[in-house]
Write a protein that binds this DNA or RNA. Structure first.
Length: 571
DNA sequence: GCCGTTTTCGGCCCGACTGTTTTCAGTCG
């Protein structure tokens, strides 16, 4: 069982205990324990073998016992007991906005509702409105929410959500009275899927004109909440947007508050409390005097808490606060550290722009070099290259390199790793390249043993620079293929083959969790945009953000090397 | 249930908004 599975069971214990009405701090303890295990880069089972997992922050005797039982018998006693007492269907109801544990309990006790279907029936029959504390409006909202969930299913991939958020931000920025505006929330933290969009605005004047402008945007469908400081609306495409307005000198505090994560806030506020301070969305306040000691910027907020600045990507509710106190936070990779892009396509295969056009755009972006990596012939649908075409393509890349000033073009390829692990190109031609991305594009459904063998065999050719989009997952789509993580990471480390953090909007593969795992095993990472057009080169941003979430520094990624150093890696 | 730079007992983040209420519980982030 992997860490995610342990974390899921503990999380479900927390939810079911909430519905049962247990002590809120006990519930939080299970949530904390769940997150502690989820955030590990090591396997929890390995940690159990090595010693005592109660050393983990958030895991005590009880949770350790549940975890141990889960491993040995495949079931957790506490989880089982709750499921016998309640109903597993209740776990689905918690996803419905507006329904929390208290109302779910009420619905379950009074009407026997234990799943979304039963809830819909009861709402349509008008039974919900008759319950104590519920009414017509609540009933109507539940029906709407059920429709929405049935349609969209929940979270939106980061790249799509980010584009929508910035479209709204750009429009609101033009409204008179808006002084500062920023997209916050999980988009700013770089979570790979997004629940809703958060935008923070500061103004010295009236809030109403700004909210009026917001709710009249063409994208906005329905207004959900309209208050004096906060307005929420649902876009026509179903995504919820929350806009929060504060005074000018409160912007830093509000941005911090709205960026989250919730878990980071809980830990930070606990720390503040011990220091005689209180944090809310308006600032850090001395409890005794009521004096505001920080509010303008996030930097000043961390400063008064005697912490190094914690970048948004690291505000995950793990050990980042302890590390900030000890000055041990990693000096995270920045976009400026990326000197080149090593994965892109041109009109030779399925790209939309020529070698020269890609080079021009890359130079504008400030790169020193790019590797041109078109497909090999196995990807027929993308017009993959035969050896003859590839040979000519290498010559054209070299020719273009001479003709385009100010940037180095590295001849490369994205070569398919075939079903048996062999590479879809003449080895002699691969040896001529400065950069070789090896990728899996078909036969995803091999057994874990077969897929592991396939990847290991490819690495052992000694011809790959990196593995492209290594897990094969599609964001919001198919899961990655099955293979033995430890074996492949070990092989990659042994052969000096890097793993790609692919920034293309449909993938984000590796994601942050995997990238951190790779780093912990001594594997180098490399960022690639997988661009199929000049515009696509900008998707490197998402790779940088995942790298930051993984805690990677400049020295962890090959893109910080010079063109010469990159080419030398293969010699 | 977990934790300890006042603590092995006594705490555990903080505020906005809605709907159903005559002063607040529930939910959300």
């Amino acid at each position: 069982m992997d860490n995610k599975e342990y974390a899921r069971i503990l999380k479900e214990i927390a939810i079911l205990r909430q519905i049962r009405g247990d002590n809120v701090f006990k519930i939080r303890a299970y949530e904390n324990g769940s997150r502690a295990i989820e955030n590990l880069t090591e396997s929890i089972e390995d940690l159990m073998d090595e010693g005592d997992i109660t050393k983990l922050d958030g895991v005590g005797k009880s949770i350790a016992r549940e975890v141990k039982a889960l491993r040995e018998n495949g079931v957790s006693p506490a989880h089982n007991e709750l499921l016998e007492e309640l109903d597993p269907g209740l776990l689905e109801l918690i996803r419905i906005q507006g329904l929390g544990p208290k109302r779910i309990k009420l619905l379950y006790d009074e009407l026997g509702i234990s799943n979304p279907e039963a809830l819909r029936k009861a709402a349509e029959a008008g039974q919900i409105a008759e319950l104590e504390g519920m009414g017509e409006k609540t009933q109507e909202k539940i029906l709407q929410e059920l429709d929405r969930l049935a349609e969209s299913g929940g979270r939106t991939p980061l790249p799509a959500a980010r584009a929508m958020a910035y479209a709204i931000k750009d429009q609101l920025e033009q409204v008179e009275g808006v002084q500062q505006i920023q997209v916050a929330g999980s988009i700013r933290r770089g979570r790979e899927t997004i629940g809703d969009i958060d935008i923070v605005v500061s103004t010295g004047g009236d809030h109403d004109p700004i909210f009026d402008a917001f709710v009249s945007l063409p994208e906005v469908g329905e207004v959900l909440v309209r208050g004096n400081t906060k307005t929420s609306a649902r876009l026509r495409n179903g995504i919820q947007v929350d806009v929060r307005i504060v005074e000018t000198d409160q912007f830093g505090a509000a941005l911090h508050y709205f960026t989250g994560s919730k878990e980071h806030h809980i830990k930070l506020r606990t720390r503040a409390k011990k220091m005689g301070l209180k944090i809310n969305e308006y600032g850090v306040v001395a409890r005794e005097t009521g004096e505001t000691v920080a509010s303008k910027t996030e930097e000043e907020l961390y400063e008064v808490l005697k912490l190094d600045f914690i970048p948004p990507e690291l505000r995950q509710g793990g050990d980042e606060i302890d590390r900030a106190e000890r000055h041990e936070l990693p000096d995270l990779l920045t976009a400026e550290d990326v000197r080149g892009d090593i994965h892109m396509h041109t009109t030779e295969t399925d790209g939309r722009n020529s070698i020269e056009e890609m080079a021009e755009k890359a130079r504008e972006m400030g790169y020193d070099y790019i590797a041109i990596t078109d497909h090999s012939q196995a990807v027929a649908i993308a017009n993959g290259m035969t050896p003859d075409r590839f040979k000519a393509h290498i010559d054209r890349i070299r020719e273009a390199d001479k003709n385009v000033d100010g940037i180095t073009l590295l001849p490369g390829i994205e070569v398919d790793i075939l079903k048996d692990g062999s590479l879809d190109m003449d080895h002699e031609l691969l040896k001529e390249c400065d950069w070789v991305v090896g990728s899996v594009h078909n036969n995803f459904n091999l057994s874990s043993e077969e897929m592991t063998h396939r990847l290991v065999t490819a690495i052992e050719t000694g011809l790959l620079s990196c593995i492209g989009h290594p897990t094969g997952r599609v964001l919001g789509g198919r899961d990655g293929y099955a293979f033995d993580t430890e074996t492949v990471l070990q092989k990659a480390a042994d052969y000096g083959v890097a793993l790609e953090i692919n920034g293309s909007t449909g993938r984000l593969d590796l994601n942050a969790e995997w990238a951190a795992k790779a780093k912990a095993r001594g594997v180098k990472l490399v960022l690639g945009s997988d661009a199929h057009s000049t515009r696509g080169l900008e998707d490197i941003f998402f790779a940088v953000q995942q790298a930051r979430r993984a805690g990677l520094t400049k020295s962890d990624v090959l893109n910080s090397l010079s063109a010469t150093q990159m080419a030398e890696l293969r010699s």
